[in-house]
Each structure stands twice: as C-alpha cells, then as structure tokens.
Amino acid sequence: MPTVAMGGEEGNDMELKVTQYEIGDDGVAVVRLRRPGRGNSWTARMNAEYRWIMARLEHDAAARVIVVTGSGDQFCVGADHKALAHYTEGDHDYVASVRGAELAKPGQGVHPEFDHDLVWHWGIGKPIVAAINGACAGIAMALACFCDLRYAASGAKLTTATARLGLPAEYGLSWLLPRLVGVTHAADILLTGRIFRAEEALRMGLVNDVFPRESFNDTVMRIARSAAAEISPLSAAATKRQLYGELMERGIGRAVDASKELIGVMMKHPDYREGVAALRDRRAPSFPPAGHERVVLPAGSLPPYRSADGDR
C-alpha cells in the first residue's frame, strides 16, 4: 500500500503517515486507519489524510466500492487521549480547531446537508462499507454510521463514549442514530455511553451483519467485490442521492413521483441496456466505470447528480 499519494484533483501530494489505501483490480478500494499500538486513534492528521484519500477515490473510476477498516485488530478507539486532554488546558476553541477550511472536501456540491463533516460520505456516489474489525468508539462510531453498509467482527466492542466524557452526542449522532436503530436504542446508546458488542449491534439494526473474526476480512471483501462487479456505478450514485436526500426532505408521495422521473432518465443510459441484456442472457452484468457519460436528471427530482468525474 502506498505511504505517499501523488498529485491528483485534490491538490498537492500528501504523505500518508496514519492511513493507508489501495485500489484492487477488482474495483474495491480499501482504506485503513493506521496508528499501531494506539488503537488507530483519531487525530487531526488522520482526519486530513482520510478526507484526502476519500476525495481521490471519489474521482477515481477504478474504485467502484470503498471499504474503510482499521489496521491490526481494532477499527478506531476514538479520539486520541492527548487530543482530548488538550481541551482541558486553557481556553481552546474547539469549533475553530475542527473547522478544517484547508482540508480536502470529498462529497461536496451534491446536497447542502452533505457538505458537512462526515455527512460528506453520503455525497460520494459509491458504496462505502465500514468493516468494523475491532474496537469502535467515539468519532469512529459516527464515521461508521455515515457509511452505507456496516459489518462487524464477532465480539467487537462499540461505544459512543461521549456520555462518560461529559460531552453531548457528537457529529450528528442524535439525528442519525434514531433513524438507524429507533429512538429507544438510540437513547440507550447515547445516554449511557455503555460498551456493547457487535452481536447486540446486529440485534439493534446498527450493523448489517456480524462475521467470525477469523474470516471477517475475507467475507467483507467478498461482499465488496460482488458489489463492484455487479452493481451499475450510475445506479449506486443515484440510489445514494435518493436514499439520503429523501430521508431528509421528501414525503413518500414525492419520493414515488421522483423515482418514476429518475427511472425514465436512467432507462436511456447504456447501464440499463446492459442490465437487461445480462438478465436475458442469464449472466453477470458488465458495467463500465462511472463518469463515462453525463446524466441530466429531471428538474426537482433529486439533489443535483454528480458523476464520478465531477460533472453535474
């Protein structure tokens, strides 16, 4: 895996010190949070690198599915304890310190709500999978929740932690968790700050599935490869905009009408013809990388579509 990523649409080269990524020939990009011996704990440096990598993958047609995981046997234990202690000393302005005006901006320009911290995952028109291979706490819980799919290794421990730090729910989890698991479970997770296991997260509906630790990585990669091989990139991008855009601002009737308008547009795209041909021929579809053609959606049907190469 590269430790230095070179050039590209997101500005200057960046030396990757606490993250890694690679794009396989199978169309699956794997991003690893990497702070060995420190539980892959989150820092300002990791945030900058992670955003930069995701911005590059957003625009790289070779990456059809993105898997986010941790190195070793932990996902991310949350904010580095030294970073937490920093705010107990003196009168530091937390909001100013995390504003990040100079950071890469993945997922931007799709919907105003998607331009915010971590919500930008929803603006990236590719499936993003959180592979929770171990401890997942604090901001890492928020990161995982903003991914499209979440799988956890058996026995993995999860916690929001903020209640035990004298802090409120962070990064929009008070809005997001009730929509993922319902108010009852969200109140339990957020108000108690307790540690719970992957198996309980599955029962709550927080994760899509739990796999044995010894086969976890292979199983998640098999799922990701299947999605990369069989899902139309155009469909993935449009569906994400439907899923999250309508979650925030559509009534059910408008969602039905908007989907009809969108179907009418996408039926004219080569991906639809290929999908129908594959179904007829009883074979797997072979979709080209995203960004080959521009699709213009009906006015008002969805937040503006942006292809993988940035067209609107």
Rank of each mutant, 00 (worst) to 15 (best):
L177A: 09
A137T: 05
L103Q: 02
A85D: 10
C136R: 03
L167V: 03
F146T: 02
S71V: 10
H116P: 08
M141C: 09
R150L: 13
V183R: 14
A161C: 12
G100I: 06
H116W: 13
T192E: 15
K82S: 12
A135G: 08
T159N: 13
C147G: 00
A61M: 05
K157C: 11
V77K: 02
R164W: 13
P168E: 11
A62E: 02
A169W: 12
H92N: 07
C147P: 02
L177Y: 04
I128W: 00
L176P: 00
A135F: 10
A63S: 02
Y87R: 00
A131P: 14
A187Q: 15
W175N: 03
P106N: 01
A144F: 10
R150F: 14
G134K: 03
A142L: 14
A83N: 10
H116F: 14
G123E: 10
Y94N: 08
L103S: 01
S174G: 07
R179K: 15
W175I: 13
Q74W: 14
W120R: 00
G107P: 01
E113V: 15
L176H: 06
A163L: 13
F75I: 15
T192D: 13
A96R: 03
A142Q: 05
G72F: 11
A62G: 02
S154Q: 13
G166S: 02
A142D: 08
H121R: 04
L84C: 05
Y87H: 01
L165A: 04
I139E: 02
L84G: 01
W122S: 00
T69D: 04
A130W: 09
A142G: 12
G90H: 07
V129L: 15
Y87L: 08
A79G: 14
A152Q: 05
A186E: 09
D115P: 06
C147W: 09
L190V: 04
A131Q: 06
E89H: 12
D73T: 07
T159R: 07
V95Q: 09
T162Y: 14
Y151F: 15
E102V: 14
V65L: 14
K82I: 13
F75N: 04
I132M: 15
V67D: 00
G90Y: 06
A156K: 13
L165E: 03
T192Q: 11
L143W: 11
G109H: 06
E102D: 15
G100K: 02
L173M: 12
D188P: 07
C147M: 07
V68I: 10
L176K: 10
E89G: 09
A61P: 07
C145S: 08
G90F: 09
L149T: 12
L158Q: 03
A187C: 06
P168Q: 08
L143C: 11
D117N: 08
S154R: 09
A131N: 08
Q74C: 09
I66Y: 05
C145V: 10
W175G: 03
K157E: 12
P178T: 11
V110Y: 05
G100V: 04
P112Q: 03
T160I: 14
L149D: 10
L191I: 12
G70A: 10
T159P: 11
A79L: 15
R64A: 05
I132V: 10
A131V: 09
